[in-house]
């Protein structure tokens, strides 16, 4: 365990990080027709990772999420752009979204929409950008 950090903060954040991430997930999926969405969920997740970085240190965060955040941003942007461009293939205007009802196992009748994929892109981009900024400032002290 890295020294110099608060033991209370560390133990509390072990639980709270998951609560925050779960709430972020909730916000992400509820975002289509109620308050929430990719941007807020992304900031929330980044907040959870920041909490981890505060309680432990940046190395821990890197171990937990062993990706290059710049690449995550790029993947997110690519997904968001791709969803918008996908409409062009169907002869629809740019950014036009589609939705439909599907019978999924366990969930039953579920409304699925391409806006969710767009939101996933936004989510990844926001997490990537926020973490890149935080790590840039936090890394050298």
């Amino acid at each position: 365990m890295p020294k110099g950090s608060d033991i209370f903060l560390q133990n509390v954040s072990k639980i709270v990080v998951f609560l925050v991430l779960a709430f972020a997930l909730y916000l992400f999926f509820t975002g289509h027709s109620s308050p929430g969405g990719g941007f807020i969920a992304g900031l929330m997740s980044a907040g959870a990772l920041l909490l981890l970085a505060l309680a432990y240190d940046i190395e821990t965060v890197r171990k937990v999420v062993p990706f290059d955040f710049k690449l995550i941003t790029a993947i997110g942007l690519l997904i968001a752009l791709g969803t918008g461009t996908g409409a062009l293939l169907f002869g629809q205007p740019f950014l036009k979204h589609a939705f439909g009802h599907f019978d999924l196992p366990l969930l039953g009748d579920t409304e699925l929409h391409t806006a969710l994929i767009f939101d996933l892109g936004v989510y990844l981009a926001v997490v990537g950008v926020t973490m890149t900024i935080l790590l840039t400032i936090g890394e050298d002290r």
């Binding site: 710049k70 690449l71 941003t73 790029a74 942007l77 690519l78 752009l81 461009t85 740019f94």
Partner: peptide
Amino acid sequence: MLIPLFTAVILIF
């Protein structure tokens, strides 16, 4: 607008 945006994102990789 779309061509440069896609290029920019791909170039990050």
